[in-house]
Design a protein around this nucleic acid. Structure first.
Ligand SMILES: [Mn+2]
Ligand SMILES: [Mn+2]
Ligand SMILES: [Mn+2]
Ligand SMILES: [Mn+2]
Lengths: 235, 235
DNA sequence: TATATTTGTTAGACTCATCTAACTTTTGTA
DNA sequence: TACAAAAGTTAGATGAGTCTAACAAATATA
């Protein structure tokens, strides 16, 4: 099926909203509009087109769900996005806070041959520069991180595995705290009033907000040691 | 200046029509329409927009000329196109007849950092897989091939340096004759009636049409030996 | 339950890039 | 030079994607 640039963006957004963060199989008009940075009226128009093309299940005033075909297209765009981000960092030497905007464009290049050759060239990477899982050629994503830095209790250690927010300002903030993928974090304390977390990373102690901690995915000490995990860090 | 995908295509086309093949500094509406695969009426609308943006010099019923700004944008798109084609062949293992369509999309990715890093990654290539000169970061193109296989006289030897037509069917035809960039061609004879050329490439003799020979750029024996050239093969 | 708030829909308008059909200007040739 | 052919332009229409403003339905809350 031939999809426009815009239709691809809608399907990718729906995939991220309804499949990736799991536990929620459907999305709403306003939610989707906010995610895409357009107005709800615009989304409403597009929902009719996507329904006509059998890419979503949707009834007036109802919730939005991807069909099998819609999910296939959505995950494919996400796969391309993350492979390109990996290419930009690993092969061209971009920093992780510079790649998202460029990958937003590259993900729409239409050539299945290209993306499979790129995957091979990168030696079939499993994670992108933000720690996000790259769907394989079949659209499968085995790991789904669920536990955030804000879920940790003082005294615990954990390892940062991914970021939820891919925006340059957030990523630069992360860097400024001395954090990166695979860094070990020790949670020192949590302020009961404003939920400020004191954390230690490679000897450096910082205070971070709840909002910040919500955007850092971590795995527990069991996961770090390769043991079975009680919390379900990997989904 | 922010240019749309379409505006970029018009500027690239004008650059190719009025700068690359030289000796002709301006283009016409129909000519441009044919090159872009749209109708003259469509071109006419766009000419007004490009004039408003000061990217072309143009008066009603007059000829079309790129301004300095228009030329800068046009050559930049061409540079991107050829760098991406080179990337696809050299790094990803595409064949030369598979890259043009994909590069038509990639040339519109907006990121000057990307293109400069790609250039470096490829080690600043001078020619793309079709032998076309890649403009440098300043938009300069030193060599301009001008002499075609059809300009050769029987008995002469020459070397294929580039192709004019980048379409897959033509490139596949070139391959079928056993020809490729840097191959030496011996012109055996030219039929006076229909201009059919008999050529020999690596021991293989073939007959090719005038149309075919017009689309193969060559350099003469002097150029092959690094001597001064009388014909002006390199522009 | 009644009402306020949130969520979602519709109507009408705009821009961009494209088309067809009809028209005008320029050019080339008899 | 006259006129036919070629080249170029205009008017009006379409479809995609977006918006604002007004409206309707669903949900939350008092
Ligand atoms: Mn990203
Ligand atoms: Mn990412
Ligand atoms: Mn090409
Ligand atoms: Mn080329």
């Amino acid at each position: 099926m031939v999809l426009s640039y815009t239709e691809e963006n809608y399907l990718k957004a729906l995939f991220q909203l309804t499949r990736e963060t799991l536990e929620k199989k459907e999305a709403g008009t306003n939610e989707l509009a906010a995610h895409l940075g357009v107005k709800p009226a615009t989304v409403n128009d597009m929902l009719k087109k996507l329904k006509d093309k059998k890419l979503i299940d949707y009834e007036k005033y109802g919730k939005i769900k991807l069909t099998k075909a819609g999910e296939k297209s959505g995950v494919e765009v996400l796969r391309k996005h993350r492979l390109w981000e990996t290419f930009l960092c690993v092969k061209l030497g971009f920093a992780w806070d510079e790649v998202h905007e460029v990958a937003e464009q590259l993900e729409h290049i239409q050539s299945s041959k290209l993306i499979e050759k790129l995957d091979k060239f990168l030696d079939y990477p499993e994670f992108d520069p933000h720690g996000d899982v790259i769907p394989n050629a079949k659209g499968e994503m085995k790991i789904k991180y669920k536990v955030c830095l804000s879920d940790m209790t003082p005294g615990e250690r954990c390892m940062m595995v991914a970021v939820k927010d891919n925006s340059a300002p957030f990523l630069q903030y992360v860097i400024s705290v001395g954090l990166g993928i695979n860094n070990v974090i020790k949670v020192i304390s949590r302020n009961a009033y404003d939920e400020l977390l004191q954390i230690e990373v490679e000897g450096k102690v910082s205070s971070v907000s709840r909002k910040f901690a919500d955007n850092i995915f971590v795995v527990c000490q069991d996961c770090m040691k390769g043991k079975k995990c009680k919390k379900g860090c990997k989904g």
